[in-house]
Computed example of a mutant assay.
Amino acid sequence: MSWADFWALIATLNSEATEESCHRLAEELSRRPVTDISGFAERLAEALYRLDQEKFGTLPLVDLTGRFGSPFPQSSDVFLYARCAVVAAGQAVWESVFFDADKFTPYTAGERNGEWLLYVPDKAYELATGKEWDRSTRYCVESYSNRDGWPDLRS
């Protein structure tokens, strides 16, 4: 799947990865060949992997402070869901955060959670084939897996 096709499908979310919008996207994707579902999964994984960087993952949560007013850090799950929300916001937002990390900050807020986007390829495959998809992608989406994005974590 080309990046243009991927971003066109993401645009159907209307900038938010809600349960409803992601279900609609999965239904749309399920009407395409299985190779498109796999291609979408690969592009999604790569988009999330590219955002897996220290400059984004160390940003504190919006409007939440720890004891004594200190910034509250993102957990690995919150960081993954924030990256999903950035992707769901569309190509322009995704590209812009690489040039200005502060543009990532609003996506750390709980109400911008993009978790539902993670399930789109699995749901599309299930709708298309009637089978559960045991898949893997070239890129790992888990937080801190991009060693180039986290130079201090390199072993």
Score class of each variant (00 low, 15 high):
R112A: 09
E142K: 15
A17S: 10
E126T: 09
R112P: 00
R135E: 05
D122R: 12
I37H: 03
L153F: 14
L48Y: 00
V87L: 08
C140A: 15
E20Y: 14
Y125C: 03
S136T: 05
G114T: 11
L13N: 07
H23W: 06
V93E: 12
A45H: 08
L9A: 11
D63E: 15
L127C: 00
T35Q: 06
L118W: 11
A26V: 04
R147G: 07
L153T: 01
A47W: 14
A82V: 00
S70I: 13
S155A: 10
E95Y: 05
G66F: 00
S76C: 05
E19F: 02
D63G: 05
R43N: 15
G90Y: 11
S15K: 15
A4Y: 05
E19V: 11
V62D: 03
E28K: 14
T108W: 00
R135N: 07
D148W: 07
E126S: 11
Y119S: 14
H23D: 11
E20V: 09
G130Q: 01
W3H: 10
E28Q: 14
P60W: 01
E19M: 07
P60M: 07
Q53Y: 06
Q91N: 10
E28D: 06
L44F: 03
P121S: 13
T12R: 13
T12F: 09
S76Q: 13
A89V: 05
W150R: 01
V78K: 00
T58H: 09
V62K: 11
T35I: 05
P121I: 15
T65A: 00
S21M: 01
P121N: 13
T108Y: 00
R24K: 13
A88T: 08
E142A: 15
Q91R: 15
Y81Q: 03
T129C: 10
R43P: 07
V120P: 04
D5L: 15
D102M: 09
E54C: 02
Y125M: 05
E27H: 06
V120R: 09
S96G: 06
Y81C: 05
G90R: 10
V141S: 09
K131A: 11
Y81L: 01
K123D: 12
T35A: 07
A109N: 07
A128V: 03
F99T: 08
W7H: 13
V62C: 01
F98W: 09
R43I: 10
S155E: 14
W116K: 15
E132M: 05
L51D: 07
G69W: 00
G110C: 08
P73V: 05
S2M: 02
T18E: 03
W94Y: 12
T105S: 13
P73D: 04
E19H: 11
P151W: 07
V141F: 15
E16A: 12
L117E: 01
F98S: 01
D102N: 14
V141Q: 13
L48S: 09
R31K: 14
V87P: 04
D152A: 15
P106M: 04
D77V: 13
T35S: 13
S75D: 12
W133A: 01
S76R: 12
A11M: 07
P60D: 03
T129M: 08
A128M: 02
N14S: 12
G66S: 06
F6L: 10
F79L: 14
A4G: 07
C22K: 11
S145D: 10
W3F: 09
L64V: 13
V34D: 10
A8W: 07
L61D: 02
E20G: 04
W133F: 05
D36K: 04
F68V: 03
S136W: 01
L9H: 01
P71I: 08
Y49E: 09
A109V: 02
